[in-house]
Design a protein around this nucleic acid. Structure first.
Lengths: 206, 206
DNA sequence: GTCTATAGAGCGATAGAC
DNA sequence: GTCTATCGCTCTATAGAC
């Protein structure tokens, strides 16, 4: 079995990317040194610079890689059987919430927010791979509910924005800031509340 | 007129605080050096350390000061005359949105998010002075609407969370990440949409 | 490509004169 | 309190041997 010898697929390169990801996610961009990355990857600092032009470009590579997996996660948001609006919305909400509250997802979000003014291009890449792509995917499900007559929505994009916004309420907010989280009951109330409000606001009229 | 000679009120101290605030808000905590703060304040670095024990404590002082003004802004959220639910919610939404989209408020929010893992206490202070205090203030208005029979809400805290969440949708999200903002029409649609959804979900039943 | 060693700049924080 | 000067350290990035 021939192993590709291109720089992009070397084992060291992967080790560097994995280590850098862990360091950046854990300590943030500005607070992570290349020495730390090198030590974590069990590689010399010079080796890092053989693969990546600068710390900035290493950071960009990490964010892009995370965005890819974020896009995959966004595409995975789906409800197989659509027969009941409430059940569909609840399933969607649960999927979305567990994604939003995921530790790594929160970390990359914190980092993108933190560096958005200094890395505007990365902020845009992230926004398209994550929130926008996720919303597009979820809007389809909402469209399906509408076309089945289970909900009556003029602007499904707006409705989706509202649904997601309600889910990103206090519970999410506390998690983002690393504050003691509300319990499971609190999470359930957020989910059920968002579903209930959408149901009432967009119920088909008689 | 006697001038207080306590360290807390010296002119230099104020200059340092103002300069540090500008630097931190503009470039973030980790990317701002004490030399930059000193130069911006037109003060020597040693003078800064005469007033503040460390960079961390200077940062804390800035955040606490911003939290005070954030709390004042939160307390200012109010609707004088409450006769119509829709009008009241719209006024509330406009006030809240212009506060959320304010440049300095966004900057401090980015910074708190960025440093939340390294400055957990500041994240908590911020959360209480900003989001929580604002929500408490706004919930009172919602309570007033309920007691007047203009809305029917079991859990006003949840309803407020939902209302704010809908306002913190894509428009806000783009502003937070410094992406090209939606236009004024987009903003209006977000506000009207949130009001309409709350109106429908919590309309008094016959 | 990968290492060791180090350059060269910038950092937070302090000493000591006034 | 405020300054100038500087310490001691860490940083990003590179040079040169292999």
């Amino acid at each position: 079995m021939l192993k590709s010898c291109s720089a992009r697929s070397s084992a060291k390169r992967s080790a560097i990317l994995d280590a850098a990801q862990r360091c950046f996610l854990e300590h943030g961009y500005a607070s992570t040194s290349m020495d730390t990355v090198a030590a974590t990857a069990a590689v010399s600092k010079a080796t890092i610079y053989a693969h990546f032009q600068s710390k900035d470009q290493l950071f960009a590579a990490i964010i892009h890689r995370r965005c890819d997996s974020l896009a995959c996660a966004a595409d995975a948001l789906e409800v197989s059987e659509i027969t009941d609006a409430r059940a569909t919305l609840t399933t969607l909400a649960r999927q979305l919430m567990s994604m939003l509250l995921d530790g790594d997802v929160l970390c990359i979000y914190r980092m993108v927010v933190a560096e958005s003014s200094r890395h505007a291009d990365l902020a845009r890449t992230y926004f398209e791979a994550g929130p926008t792509r996720g919303k597009q995917r979820l809007s389809k499900t909402l469209d399906a509910l509408v076309s089945k007559g289970l909900l009556q929505i003029d602007d499904t994009w707006l409705a989706m924005d509202q649904f997601i916004g309600m889910l990103r309420g206090e519970h999410f907010h506390r998690a983002l800031l690393g504050l003691p989280a509300g319990d499971r009951t609190d999470l359930e109330r957020t989910i059920e509340g968002a579903v209930e409000t959408i149901m009432r606001a967009y119920a088909p009229r008689a």
